[in-house]
């Protein structure tokens, strides 16, 4: 029987294409247009060529913010991925506690970013915050408004509190999809707990872990609201991440040209690192498979 070729299904994709065009492609094109021009407002633009890119590439401010951002994302991934997997492995698999754990784990994910920032800003205060007050009572010198180390610890712990559940829930979904036959076979072979994890659970979780790594990397690399609310990028500029710096430049100083050049480079770095993660993990998956 001859196969029917029908291309009409492509029309079903049209709404998504229109949505993506208006929410991503057209704004990105506009940013590219801004990056090669200068403006003083009133929708008047003057050709600047590659000047803004050159200026940004030779500006220590951007490199410092990029360094801080990479460090932040690396720390976040190193903590959240293993911790999320550990929590998922220890979550109950059957009974009443499954629903209870799932609801409790989902709670931090439902809180808006600015509220999370406000919660931790108050929580960490030495005068009225439970965390700050307790640490001060224990004799620990903790003040996130004046000590860069304390500020970093605060925003990292805050992010871990906010987002580890996502990794745990994804890993849990991956674990639940493993058929019992695999565990039975491992039992017959008298495999150790580590071997079960290494040769059954981890390979089977690889797909969802890849999504978790990508989501957490992209989210942490674009983080803005929580550190902005807690530290405002300070003390000094020690917690000024790329997005905070970018907003200061684009909206605070109204330097649209340099901010557009900055945005494009920011976008390219995210694209590169996401592609590397995706490629490495899908290839690992294929080799394991």
């Amino acid at each position: 029987m001859e196969k029917t070729v029908n291309q009409k299904a492509w029309f079903l994709v049209l709404p998504v294409l229109v949505l993506v065009a208006f929410s991503a492609v057209i704004p990105l094109m506009t940013v590219v247009n801004y990056s090669v021009q200068d403006t003083f407002g009133n929708n008047q633009f003057f050709w600047a060529g590659l000047e803004w890119f050159k200026e940004m590439l030779r500006d220590d401010r951007m490199w410092d913010a990029l360094g801080r951002q990479l460090l932040f994302s690396a720390i976040i991934l190193l903590i959240q991925i293993p911790l999320g997997v550990f929590i998922a492995l220890n979550m109950p698999k059957k009974g009443f506690w499954v629903s209870f754990c799932l609801v409790v784990m989902s709670l931090p994910l439902l809180i808006p970013w600015n509220v999370v920032g406000t919660i931790w800003q108050i929580f960490g205060r030495v005068d009225i915050g439970l965390l700050g007050y307790t640490l001060a009572a224990l004799g620990i010198d903790y003040n996130y408004t004046s000590d860069p180390f304390a500020a970093w610890v605060t925003i990292i712990v805050m992010d871990v509190w906010h987002w580890t559940s996502l990794v745990a829930l994804l890993a849990y979904a991956g674990l639940k999809s493993i058929p019992d036959a695999y565990y039975q076979a491992a039992k017959i072979d008298q495999a150790s707990r580590w071997n079960v994890f290494r040769y059954i659970e981890l390979p089977k979780m690889m797909g969802v872990l890849m999504i978790a790594v990508l989501l957490r990397f992209m989210d942490s690399f674009m983080i803005y609201t929580e550190p902005f609310v807690v530290t405002g990028g300070g003390p000094g500029s020690t917690t000024t991440m790329l997005s905070i710096d970018l907003v200061k430049m684009a909206l605070g100083q109204f330097d649209l040209g340099p901010a557009a050049a900055f945005s494009i480079m920011y976008f390219l770095v995210i694209l590169l690192i996401s592609w590397v993660f995706y490629t490495v993990m899908t290839n690992l998956d294929k080799r394991e498979g």
């Binding site: 057209i26 094109m29 506009t30 590219v32 247009n33 801004y34 090669v36 021009q37 403006t39 929708n43 633009f45 050709w47």
Partner: peptide
């Protein structure tokens, strides 16, 4: 389209 601040070099780039 004026708000998109098009220039010929960027238009050629996207084309």
């Amino acid at each position: 389209m004026e708000w998109m601040a098009w220039t010929w070099p960027t238009a050629i780039f996207f084309m």
